[in-house]
Design a binder for these strands. Structure first.
Length: 259
DNA sequence: ATGGCAAATTGAATTTGA
């Protein structure tokens, strides 16, 4: 089974790209973040007609929004609200016995200090609550994907020195995300497949004049599995070429082939 | 905290992203 994650930055604007990745990359399941639309406006029919009729969608106007699109029937659906908000940042589906959690973690604003920036506090609290949730509901046969908005390792950013005090790569975010991974019993499938040394990115800012030559990327999007599924990790791909498509998302899809 | 941009909403400017 091929499971992918992609922050699409508006599913309505980039519907044609969603359909293109589903077909070109042969995803069985695609988890989207930042769909930015209410469920009534979600292009569910177009995606169903293309061959992904099983869908779990949870959106709101303008912001956030997550969805799971599947070729195979969804056996169970659920979602969680964290940090006391109903902001459509999580949805879960069981497909072929695998529990898939799709998360859009808060970006956290500009200043990496919770006393000066309420959004950063929200982000840290969100990580803490997700960590507690999976400690109390120990996952198995599970995959956690999504835009976690944190690049935890030095090799996950173009310059660990220059991004040290930048939100997404601050020490506290990095430590807390690793703790969330370890305490939930998760394996970073992307690092498991590619190893620790290679620089890996899934996001490039829109602001770069030429994202290829500047290559100031960050690995903000993640695919984790529980340890019981780790032996089934056959292949991981970061589909970087979508960043070069016309009117692209600033994130690229990551896919996991489970055997 | 940067930034050369982008998207959604409301109706030219604001908010958010990271």
């Amino acid at each position: 089974m091929r499971i992918a994650t992609w922050n699409i930055n508006s599913v309505r604007l980039r519907l044609s790209q969603v359909l293109r990745v589903l077909e070109e990359y042969d995803f069985d399941v695609l988890c989207l973040q930042e769909t930015k639309t209410r469920d009534v406006s979600f292009p569910a029919n177009e995606i169903a007609e293309a061959g992904w009729p099983y869908q779990a969608i949870r959106g709101e106007k303008s912001y956030n929004g997550v969805a799971i699109l599947s070729r195979f029937p969804i056996e169970k659906k659920s979602y969680q609200d964290w940090v006391g908000k109903r902001d459509c940042r999580h949805i879960a589906a069981q497909i072929k016995g695998i529990n898939i959690h799709n998360i859009y973690l808060p970006a956290g604003g500009d200043i990496p200090d919770r006393d000066e920036n309420i959004k950063f506090g929200h982000k840290l609290d969100f990580v803490s609550e997700v960590t507690e949730y999976f400690e109390q509901n120990k996952p198995s046969k599970s995959v956690l994907v999504g835009d976690l908005n944190i690049a935890p390792l030095a090799e996950d950013v173009w310059s660990t020195k220059q991004l040290r005090n930048v939100v997404s790569h601050s020490d506290i975010e990095r430590v807390n995300l690793i703790a969330m991974q370890e305490r939930g019993g998760w394996v970073d499938a992307v690092r498991d497949f590619f190893g620790a040394d290679e620089r890996l990115y899934s996001w490039w800012s829109y602001r770069a004049r030429d994202y290829i030559s500047s290559n100031r990327g960050r690995r903000l999007d993640h695919v984790w599995t529980t340890t019981d599924l780790a032996p089934q990790i056959q292949k991981v791909e970061i589909h970087t070429n979508t960043r070069g498509w016309k009117q692209p998302s600033d994130h690229v899809p990551i896919s996991l082939q489970l055997g």
